[in-house]
Amino acid sequence: MPDPLAFTAQSLARRGALLEAEDGGEVLALLPPELSREMGLAEEVRLSAVGGGDVVACGLGTPLLEAVVGAARREVPVTAARMKREPSPKAGYARSLAERYVIRNGVAEVLEVAGGEATYLVAWLAYVAEADERHEGVVALGVHAQEGAVPDEGFIAACDVGAEGALAPWPESAVVPGAERWLARYAPEVEERVLRGVREATARRHARDYERMAAYYAAMVAEARAPRRRVDAAAMEAKVRHLVAERDSKLRDLADRFTLRVHTRLAAALWVAAPVARVRMRVRRRKGSRELELRLPAGAQVFDRLPCEGCLGTTERPALCDERLHVLCETCVPLASGRPHCPACGT
């Protein structure tokens, strides 16, 4: 258990406060004006675990500790590390994979296989999905920082910060400007894949309750149209209209109740320097050719999925357009025969 006073003092210092330990287990803190307003404290304040007089308490259950913990939870921890436990990918294995790599409407030739290191950005996204039920979870997403290729799950598992001894601190500057755009590009697809089962289960429950409610009001309407004793026709139709309006209102409320609302936030991010096997390939389509680089990072069993140049997806089995040999996914080119339409070229 961390000491609440030390935890509070360290949290305030990280946000710009100046601290000085005093006799009696107290800490004198000078807070920046913004932090002072956020915490509801004076800019000069004394802290202790139990408080008393003009000394502010920050022990367990105190308002100050709760405010500090709440602020810490809103922060996104970001760090950088280098893989040290995972072995470097074997060049022979990478070459074997490359020789079997499929270009769906072209041919590929392996030019070079070499070892190296690449920078990846791994993010953990926390989601909350609410309808008639609440679902919470965390999903991980990794991208090659420069080019946006997506590694497989084996690499993500190797980057698990809970794996003891898997990572070492990386003192070098690891941030690659613009890498976060790849996370924004792929996050909706990952979110949809994770929540597909939740959406299907919610839709089934909605359909079940819809059928039950519709059947209930259908029976009520049928009973109103066939009363046991003689009823004025106008009164009967008024009752039917009332039942139909009530049914429609409840069915609309039912639709709102089963509408899935999803909130996603970035929970943590890790810059990773990982050993990789790089494969340089020449791909050909009709009379054109270009070079592609495939990467096999440590812990992965297959090459990173290449970003599609025609949409926001990725592909393991790319097709090529005729004009500029853009890399296209299975969504952009479902059938690789003939002359494919290229969204990137517009032709």
Results as ranks from 00 to 15, higher is better:
H263N: 11
A13D: 02
G178I: 13
D3I: 02
V102S: 00
T314C: 05
G24R: 02
E133H: 09
G154E: 08
W182F: 15
G24Q: 01
A6R: 03
P63D: 10
V55Y: 02
R230C: 05
D54I: 15
L328T: 09
V69M: 07
A81I: 10
D232C: 11
V102D: 00
R339G: 10
V279A: 07
R204G: 11
A71Y: 00
V333I: 10
P177H: 08
E22W: 01
A71S: 07
P151C: 10
P77C: 15
F303H: 12
R204W: 01
R280I: 10
A21E: 02
R261I: 15
D322H: 13
R205K: 09
S337D: 01
A203H: 00
W170C: 10
T315Y: 00
L254W: 11
R247G: 13
V107K: 07
M83G: 11
R181F: 00
N105V: 04
A118V: 05
R73I: 06
C159F: 02
R285L: 11
L335Y: 00
L306P: 02
W271L: 15
A42V: 09
E112Y: 05
E191K: 12
C345W: 00
F303C: 15
G70N: 07
D248R: 15
A129K: 00
G338V: 07
R282T: 07
G59K: 08
A319H: 10
R212A: 11
G338T: 06
E309N: 06
R229P: 00
V272F: 09
I103Q: 12
V279H: 04
R228T: 06
